[in-house]
Nucleic acid binder design. Structure first.
Lengths: 187, 187
DNA sequence: GATTAAAGTGACACTTGTGTTACTTTTGTT
DNA sequence: AACAAAAGTAACACAAGTGTCACTTTAATC
């Protein structure tokens, strides 16, 4: 009993992702989004009350996909297996740390409180999986004792964001980053 | 023969810095700036033609102060001396990497071409000093051969941006980061 | 005290974005 | 064919930003 949709929620999310990464949180607007998808601005309001609503739901969508993959880390028994899987996963999902950063710019107000809460829950789930990995590493005495847990996770997540200005090939770049993170840049 | 100034260029730069770090490039406006300094928007136009002009000049100002300090790296002869000085300098100027990132969001058009060019020149000067440090490290065989130069600089600059969500004390945090960068997080 | 010129203000016309609403289009169901 | 209902549009009133310009304020100089 309904007309066929001109654009899917997936279309919205795809364009949202591109615009967010390109223009940042403050540079994103429904106007840009509508223009990008060649639809009217009003149509978007049929599905999302406002910018924040859309962005939060998009973030939850991205997070869930990422978590689905991160969950698989538990398939690996060995610390090495988990470490390699985690690093590869993060380099494959290199936009996740950027999006998380952007997500933290959403101003918290009554309207979006619930959504933000749910998004933060997903972050906690992510942290839970990561913490499992860290604990195993500690138990097996693999990590430098003097380096705190949050820093281990921090350097892994942040290393994705190092700009490769010199256009070093992806495989070479990733291999080098892994090496620096594990063993440092000094001999 | 002139009236006393209500606000100095330094006042502008101070407020600009704060607003840029808080709101990002797209979230910065002359309106906010004027409000912050309790002056009229029109007054700012007496000194800067537009937002981009102001931001670029502010960036040049910040870069010059930073370069003045970075230059001092050459006072140290030993590689260790230079490395320690560089790390401490970057942690002391932790806003520099953030500001450089923000600066890269300025859209290049005819109006700002000259300013951007001059700002990029300052980046090259910065790179020159850093490259001197890298070369000495290579010559003295201190660096892991398999890690490319841009990545060594990249991890140093990016490490500042790792969010310390758990509020680990500054000194402890900095010490740990140095350790991870030099020797990695694995034993 | 009058003059001068820089410093600062406030209002104007304009642009871009928001959220809402009455409206039109499309398509399956009766 | 008529209808129902969801999908999409276009226009409105509003808010916040821009750049400009005629104006006022202030303080040094004659």
């Amino acid at each position: 009993m309904a007309r066929e949709r001109k654009f899917s929620t997936d279309d919205l999310y795809r364009a949202t992702k591109q615009l967010l990464l390109q223009n940042g949180y403050e540079g994103f607007s429904f106007s840009l989004l509508a223009e990008d998808l060649d639809i009217s601005r009003g149509a978007i309001y049929k599905y999302f009350d406002n910018r924040e609503e859309l962005i939060i739901n998009f973030m939850k969508y991205e997070m869930n996909i990422f978590l689905e993959e991160l969950k698989q880390i538990e398939r690996y028994d060995s610390f090495e297996g988990k470490l390699t899987y985690l690093m590869d996963l993060i380099f494959k999902n290199s936009t996740i740390p950027q999006l998380i950063e952007i997500g933290q710019r959403i101003p918290l107000n009554e309207k979006v409180k619930k959504g933000i809460f749910e998004l933060e829950n997903l972050h906690l789930v992510m942290y839970k999986y990561l913490q499992g990995f860290i604990e195993q590493g500690r138990k097996e005495q693999r990590f430098r004792d003097s380096v705190p847990d949050p820093l281990i996770l921090g350097v892994i997540f942040q290393s994705i964001l190092i700009p490769n200005h010199h256009g070093i090939s992806q495989s070479e770049w990733v291999r080098s980053i892994k090496e620096v993170l594990c063993y440092g840049f000094l001999k």
